[in-house]
Amino acid sequence: MAGNQIDWQKRYKQLENSSKNDCIKHYYRNAIFDGNTAISDVPLVALDFETTGLNFNHDDIVSAGLVPFNTRRISCSGSKHWLVNPKQKLDEESIVIHGITHSELIDAPDFSKIIEPLLAALAGKVIVVHFAPIERHFLYQALQARLGEGLEFAVIDTLELEKRALQARQGLIGRLFNKKLDSVRLGDSRKRYSLPAYQSHSALTDALATAELLQAQLAYHYRDDTRLADLWI
């Protein structure tokens, strides 16, 4: 399971040394890197972006939401939500999904204005997302485009954890017959833990939904003292 593990301790050290941007340097310096830490002792932050599309090469972030939490409590009072003015025009489809209108986005700031508060809110916490490639690539690209330098970071991916759980349940026979796994989409995963369906799909609601999902997954499949290294990727 943890075969292709990145040694985040080594990686963060390298990144800190090579980074030229203060904000990013600060993030690396404060990152949690000891994989032996018990998950119940780790400060977490659920992160979600809404984007104009799925291609991080020419789609843009339109909103970012985050909610700090730990294995016991999710704290709405620490949550943040930003709308961001995309460089690229919104297509009609994504507007429907996000419920964000053009006029709201026209008044929103450029991503460069939220870099500092965003990185500050993420600092010292392990980032939790549902489907890591989106947040990883979009954040890397957005920073690369504005600061000339991207950000690499460890994540706990609730989609990945859900896949592992479903595979474990599927067992050897299932794998041999190549049975199709149940859906690991956020809403479908939540249903398996009797978590409620949320009406809105803002970045903030999805971040909250992700935090709740991780709490449920941990309650079901992991012990309190599970090592961080067994969860992050």
């Binding site: 409590r73 999710i74 978590l195």
Partner: peptide, 14 residues
Amino acid sequence: LACQIEVAYFRAGT
């Protein structure tokens, strides 16, 4: 009030 809420999940039986 909604912004001050804390959320917690409890598996059946805990």
